[in-house]
Write a protein that binds this DNA or RNA. Structure first.
Lengths: 206, 206, 206, 206
DNA sequence: GATGAATGAGACTTCATTCAT
DNA sequence: TATGAATGAAGTCTCATTCAT
């Protein structure tokens, strides 16, 4: 996860990896620096040579992550979309879901930490909304307008559509891969989500 | 919040209120018993006279909440709800959303704690699944089957419908009232959620 | 045990009995006043209405005991002895052993406390030596001299004889009934102790 | 006392020494870890860096002592002791007494702790019986049988002889050096103990 | 006299952080 | 640079004792 980061020594990578995993598993406050040191295979003092405090370690993990890792991936997706690679909104959603699932699978611990710690750290929250929230929301808005213009989507406030579609997908993926990762769900459900989002749950007369 | 509970001394109520507020604000692990005592205006020892441990204090706060989460809607005679009160699935959803919004508004701190702490406490998780998962899920399934039989809902696996409808509503309410309580959203959006869930987001030709 | 004590209320007797049992089992420092209260079936405050402190409770149990209970019994025995009821020293020892065993069996918890707490309480130690030590030792000395005069005992310093005979018996009884009460020992061993004390362990030629 | 132990830091030795002294003086339950820290001249936390808990500290102090209690006499080649070094049982007893007196003098505080705490700690009791009880008792039994075979000892159950001789010596040494260390006793009494054990206390006609 | 809720000092223990090596 | 022993503040919890009822 931190392999792509340059200018990090072997030890630093180990510390970050260990801390990420432990924070995700037991929470920030529930993880001790000695546990991190042991898991990373370094001495306790070494952690503090690289990070002034435990809090700084958390911020190091969580803050650049959002900017450097979450950001680009999101943008990558939307560039694809905005390049009009998809003919229908369904295709767009499908691609997004699959992409998000992959992303979540690759970054589960990081996301877990983010979800857990966001409420307790005003600064993190602000950064999150700043970098992800605004940027991404604006691009989604464009996408929706694009498909509305093509006549594929109902003419409601784009934000409403984004929120409903987004929260359906978001909460589905979150529950599925983070909150209850052991539950055993049917994989074709994704198609049903798309179907329902498209045509609703009410039965149409033939 | 704890006013309605009988047979609680003044001090106990104070301790529960202080603990709830602090747990919600700073998390369980991030709150010290001495903080709770100070906020409640009692000696630290008093806390432990009423609750064997800090963990028991958490459970006391959180357990009844879990039971109440989806309970009320189903506590009344369930058949009544199905046969008499609601003609359509939309009406049922609308009632549920409104009921849940009221509940969430009244129990925000409690729910915050629940959401934050669930991942870190195996026992809480187990209780939650016990109380909410099985019981409530089964009743929802019946409801969906009922409306499917009436020809109002598409003939998919009821669990899929529950999951999609449920997660849409759930994540909408949670984001709206707990995660980002200051965001400024349009209240008629609820009707749009229902509309979209019912008919989908795709534009129908006239 | 405290039945014969006059001017004690029902509650006081209960407290003393509970405290004695618990002190014996878990030690003075290892027993809490709340445990005592629960076992005695009274409120915690009640203990402190009768005894100013936990320490005073210990002294109440342990101090008059030595004087009122251990004392008279010892004296009773020695009066019998000094009244020349025994023809031989062996008979005297046998009577004493049996008497002591009975005494120890009836007062096990008290003795346990005494053994455990004596080293930690200078005042107790002093009282013990004062009341038991001197008084009893003097009478034993007379007894030994009596049998030496009758030509039954070797002409050594009486104190040496007392110490050796006494400690043999004492440590035998203590181990047997207090330290390792569950060990399974042969009852006729008492006769062997007397035999060995009398004639030694070396084999005599016929 | 802990000088001979290798691979112990200066601080560890200090902690062990302070704890030993305080446990002996005030008992395990009556000694606080903060007292130990102060006496050892270290921070309280330092204790717990070396010993997981107060209990483990007790075990560290007491366990090796138990093993050494009767060990040394038998650690050397046991047959040598029997066949060559001692011609008579008296010589054997004399050697053992002297050896044990030396040991007790050097380990008074340790033994005090052992005697005080044994009754309250099931685990200690078990260890003790394991180390001392079985092992040593069996070897003593062989010794007694050896001298019985040589015709020096009466033909009783060896266990009886061990118990009487052992408890005489044991309680003599314990009282003399641990319980009442200030009493002023005659040193040649040891010879009298041997004499009495050998020939008994009864006067033989010439 | 009896109660038991309340107290607060102090017990054991953890842990982020420092610093001599 | 890395180490890990040492620290001491702070955490959870216990308990003898007090006091209003």
């Amino acid at each position: 996860m931190f392999n792509d980061e340059q200018n990090l020594t072997e030890k630093q990578r180990g510390i970050l990896a260990a801390a990420t995993e432990l924070f995700a598993e037991k929470g920030y406050a529930g993880t001790s620096t000695s546990e991190i040191a042991k898991k990373a295979g370094v001495a306790e003092g070494t952690i503090f040579r690289h990070y002034k405090s435990k809090k700084e370690l958390l911020l190091t993990i969580v803050s650049p992550t959002m900017i450097k890792i979450l950001g680009p991936v999101f943008k990558r997706d939307f560039n694809k979309v905005l390049d009009k690679e998809f003919d229908t909104f369904q295709d767009f959603i499908r691609a997004m879901i699959q992409n998000r699932i992959k992303f979540v699978k690759n970054n589960t611990p990081l996301l877990r930490i983010l979800i857990q710690e966001l409420p307790f750290h005003e600064d993190l929250k602000k950064q999150f909304i700043e970098h992800i929230g605004k940027d991404v929301f604006e691009k989604l808005r464009e996408t929706v307008r694009h498909f509305q213009a093509k006549g594929q989507l109902i003419d409601t406030n784009p934000d409403t559509i984004i929120r409903i579609v987004g929260s359906s997908i978001f909460s589905y993926i979150i529950s599925r891969y983070i909150v209850i990762p052991d539950a055993d769900w049917d994989d074709e459900e994704i198609e049903w989500i798309i179907e329902i989002l498209t045509n609703g749950i009410s039965r149409k007369e033939s």
